[in-house]
């Protein structure tokens, strides 16, 4: 104990300084998007000229953007619903039943984390092409469910492990059947995890570019639309405005999701991103 205290006084300050530097490295580069989105100049360069919101109004008026936004919202909602439903069933199976080979199943569903997105995109493209399924927003949903499964599973498994199983057993002992127990006990207790999973998978899908690029066909999602705009220098301020709004929306949703997820759990437990 003594050693720990001494040690803390010694290196604590140095590491705190490093931590601040690290957070700056994470956040400052991204802050330039909102800063320049309000700059009254078509060139993204210092010095700042003046304040304007015209890039925002210009961008909102773009019908291509509106269509792409609506497409991304639809894809994101379906992806979130499907991957969270599948993840919830799987999480119940893995946390409540003795399933032989559960480690293998978990490994299999985490595999998309270890396969480059471009490989996931092209191999799905090949499959869809050889069974003659035309590319559409639905094929994007399939690709997005694939990459969202690891996240939905991680969030939901940690939530299902986190609450008392005896509550479910009590419900079964008191004569409720499996379904009623699920809806009246398991689901309400898992609800914070379900909401967090819905939000996080929605964000992953909403922001995903490369898989959508291969699978969307002629429909554009918002990241595909942005990618198209990057070729035209005069469109960049509008892209910055759109990007700033997307970043703010994502941050708000993530913070909300993590807050919901933390309800009723150990506040010092790590978020399970990517692990």
């Amino acid at each position: 104990m003594m050693a720990k205290v001494r040690n803390k006084a010694g290196q604590g300050r140095g590491l705190f300084g490093y931590a601040i530097f690290y957070l700056a490295f994470l956040y400052v580069p991204v802050l330039f998007l909102p800063i320049f989105s309000f700059n009254d100049s078509a060139f993204i360069a210092f010095p700042l000229v003046g304040f304007t919101t015209k890039w925002y109004t210009e961008m909102f008026a773009d019908t291509g953007m509106q269509i792409a936004l609506w497409n991304s919202l639809k894809v994101g909602m379906f992806t979130a619903l499907i991957s969270t439903t599948l993840g919830l069933l799987a999480a119940k199976a893995l946390t409540r039943y003795q399933v032989p080979g559960s480690a293998a199943v978990l490994g299999f569903t985490s595999l998309p984390l270890f396969v480059p997105d471009i490989v996931l995109g092209i191999s799905l493209l090949i499959l869809l092409n050889s069974v003659h399924i035309p590319l559409s927003l639905w094929t994007v949903v399939v690709g997005h469910v694939l990459i969202c499964m690891p996240f939905a599973m991680a969030v939901l498994i940690s939530r299902m492990e986190g609450f008392d199983k005896s509550l479910e057993e009590a419900s079964l002992d008191l004569g409720e059947d499996g379904w009623m127990t699920f809806w009246r006990v398991t689901f309400p207790l898992a609800l914070p995890g379900v909401i967090a999973s819905l939000l996080l998978t929605f964000i992953v899908s909403f922001d995903e570019f490369l898989i959508a690029y291969f699978l969307a066909g002629t429909d554009a999602t918002l990241p595909i639309y942005i990618w198209g705009q990057l070729r035209f220098p005069y469109k960049l301020p509008g892209v910055l405005a759109l990007g700033a709004l997307i970043l703010v929306a994502s941050c708000v949703l993530v913070i909300f999701a993590e807050w919901v997820r933390s309800l009723g759990t150990d506040p010092n437990k790590a978020p399970t991103v990517g692990a």
Binding site: L26, Y27, V30, L33, L200, I203, V204, D207, E208, F209, P223, I226, W227, G243, I246, L247, S250, C251, V254, V273, G274
Partner: peptide, 8 residues
């Protein structure tokens, strides 16, 4: 930052 748009 991990959850926000990679592209952006």
């Amino acid at each position: 930052p991990f959850w926000t748009s990679y592209l952006l």
